[in-house]
Amino acid sequence: MKLRKVTAVSAVVLALTVSATACSSKKNDSGSSGGGKTIAIGIKYDQPGLGQKTPQGYAGFDVDVATYVAKKLGYSSDQIEWKESKSADRETMLQRGDVDFIAATYSITPKRQAKVDFAGPYLLAHQDVLVRADDSSIKSPADLNNKKLCSVTGSTSAQNVHDKLAPKAQLQQYPTYSACLTGLQSKAIDALTTDDSILAGYAAQAQFKGKFKLGGFKMTNENYGIGVKKGSPLKDKINKALEEMVADGSWEAAVKKNFGPADYKNEPAPKIGDIKS
């Protein structure tokens, strides 16, 4: 009986040891750099030039920024677990701990800052319009009056233009940006509006090269930040990584790689904490 008791105790100790080892091999959630098996990063899956899931993998400016940051945190590219972060889900994903950080055209706003923290900004974008390359009739926001202006269903971009700049613009809602581009190409619509970075990403696709141009209107400021859970120590580490990305030229290289074909006139890399209203 004594031998059986000792054996039982040993089995319990062994089970606890195995359990602890298994737990330690999981993703590091403490906010410390490296040391974890993987790091979970939220991106968009459907935004060419920014965050897109392709048969060859993940591509875009946000992906390049996130990969650089992850490397500085101690993770190689094959240790990154990419997760789709739709706009409506981003705060919830961070609050639940589904991801360590999110880089997904995530504009810093007071409303969002009440729920999550932001590193950055790492890109200053603006609401703009995309028009056909041969269209010289739209030179300012006012020229959108009596024009068919497209944006995706649920977006407020076109409504903002209508309410503030071109009250006679004819608003058109399409299910996707790709559908708007098709309509723009066929002349069913006259212009597409959203963030200039998003427009540049679409226009830079091979099948659209040279067919569209950005208006350059800069109708709003969109400060893209990297979202983290409220109080996460990752914020300061990500900010440091972003500063290093700018300093070593990797940021500028990523801009040219992802937006260059659209002739995107990007703003200089913003300073950390400098949020333009």
Rank of each mutant, 00 (worst) to 15 (best):
V6M: 13
T7H: 08
T7D: 10
V9C: 06
S10M: 13
A11S: 05
V12S: 12
V12W: 10
T17I: 15
T21R: 13
S24K: 15
S24E: 13
D29K: 13
S32G: 15
S33A: 15
G42S: 03
K44E: 12
Q52V: 15
G57I: 05
V69P: 04
K71N: 13
K72F: 01
W82D: 00
S85R: 03
A88T: 02
R96P: 00
G97I: 12
A104I: 01
A104S: 06
Y106V: 08
T109M: 09
R112I: 02
Q113G: 12
F118C: 06
A125D: 14
H126D: 09
L130F: 11
S136Q: 14
I138Q: 10
A142N: 11
D143E: 12
L149E: 06
C150A: 06
Q159D: 04
Y174T: 01
P175S: 15
P175L: 15
L184R: 06
A188L: 10
L192M: 11
L192R: 02
T194V: 11
A203T: 10
Q207A: 07
Q207V: 01
K209T: 04
F212P: 01
G215S: 03
N221Y: 07
Y224N: 09
V228I: 04
K229P: 00
A241T: 08
A253L: 12
K257H: 08
G260A: 10
K265T: 08
K265I: 03
P268M: 03
G273Q: 02
